[in-house]
């Protein structure tokens, strides 16, 4: 994880272009009217169609997408430097603070759900956006979210645990709260203990390639900052089952996975310079054999597009 471009820039540009291709769709998911009460809400079924009774906090991760979009000065990105993009990202952060439950958690599917996933992932997306935009962090909301995360766990879902680890460490350092950093470290130890000898991070008691790629990129971001040796070894072990399950043409059989996820998050492989895996994955996308954000429903499209855009942004950041 040096400051050299980990993989060829042309490869990550391909990810960037695929993500930028989704911008208009993603912007359409948000309430962009500054006079609206729900300004900054990116859960369209909630603010526009009124189909659900609670806004999905995970939709607010769009703030992360928009902040990278604002900063990514590449030829294929006409949205770079657009002040409105920045304002919408800030509005998404603001709306996130409004939908927090009193105990610090967030909802994903229904009111008072107290979703571990929504709390961990949305907090991480918001923290990343704040850091990229250099905005004032919502101290109290982040503190409450981390307090809730540090008292809850999801042993059967390693990717959710990894998100909690990353957000606890990031917020702990940002707000100078040692207890959150320590709590993240404890969760990391538990997560690494749950990893099998073959490198599998358990997802519903078994291996799921798509979710493993999520765990890997979150741990990679954690290790990049903390330089944690144990974590680095676990990531390297975690790469093995992914490499084995990935066919030479870059596809894999989702039906044999515990959660049957069909997507593939490339960021860990980009950051760790796994050129071969990235090559194969992009070849599968080019051959219309692998899923890309355009094929997914709105909620998953945003998450995967964020990962694609971050793959491009991390390499862009190193090169400039």
């Amino acid at each position: 994880m040096s400051e050299q471009p980990p993989v060829e820039r042309s490869l990550t540009d391909a990810y960037g272009e695929l993500a930028v291709w989704q911008v208009e769709r993603i912007l359409g998911l948000g309430d962009r009217n500054p006079n609206s009460d729900l300004y900054g809400c990116f859960d369209r079924p909630y603010w526009h169609y009124r189909q659900i009774d609670a806004a999905n906090a995970r939709a607010q991760e769009t703030a992360h997408f928009l902040s990278m979009l604002y900063l990514l000065e590449e030829e294929y990105n006409p949205f770079a430097g657009q002040e409105k993009i920045r304002h919408w990202a800030e509005a998404a952060i603001e709306f996130w603070t409004l939908i927090q439950e009193r105990n610090g958690s967030f909802n994903e599917f229904y009111p008072h759900e107290n979703s571990f996933s929504a709390t961990a992932f949305s907090s991480w997306g918001i923290v990343e956006a704040i850091q990229l935009l250099d905005s004032e962090p919502p101290h109290e909301e982040l503190r409450r979210a981390c307090h809730w995360l540090s008292h809850h766990d999801r042993p059967l879902a390693s990717h959710k645990r990894a998100a909690a680890i990353l957000v606890l460490d990031t917020v702990g350092r940002m707000l100078d709260e040692r207890r959150f950093v320590d709590s993240g470290r404890k969760k990391l130890v538990n997560l690494l203990q749950s990893q099998s000898s073959k490198g599998v991070f358990p997802e519903s008691m078994g291996f799921d390639l798509g979710l493993q790629t999520i765990t890997l990129y979150l741990l990679t971001l954690y290790v990049r900052r903390t330089r944690d040796e144990m974590g680095y070894e676990a990531i390297m072990n975690g790469m093995l089952p992914v490499r084995q399950a990935l066919h030479p043409d870059g596809t894999f059989s989702a039906k044999t996975m515990t959660r049957r996820t069909q997507y593939f998050y490339p960021l860990a492989f980009v950051l760790l310079g796994e050129q071969d895996v990235v090559d194969r994955h992009l070849a599968a996308i080019g051959a219309r054999k692998a899923i890309n954000p355009a094929w997914l429903d709105d909620r998953h499209c945003v998450h995967l597009a964020i990962n694609y855009l971050q793959s491009a942004y991390e390499v862009f950041r190193v090169c400039t």
């Binding site: 769709r25 359409g28 962009r32 169609y49 009124r50 189909q51």
Partner: peptide
Amino acid sequence: LRKSRNEPSSDFYSPRDLDL
């Protein structure tokens, strides 16, 4: 009460939203 259901499809992104 504030907003009825069955809203029409509108408020999507339009190129006029940004000065590209």
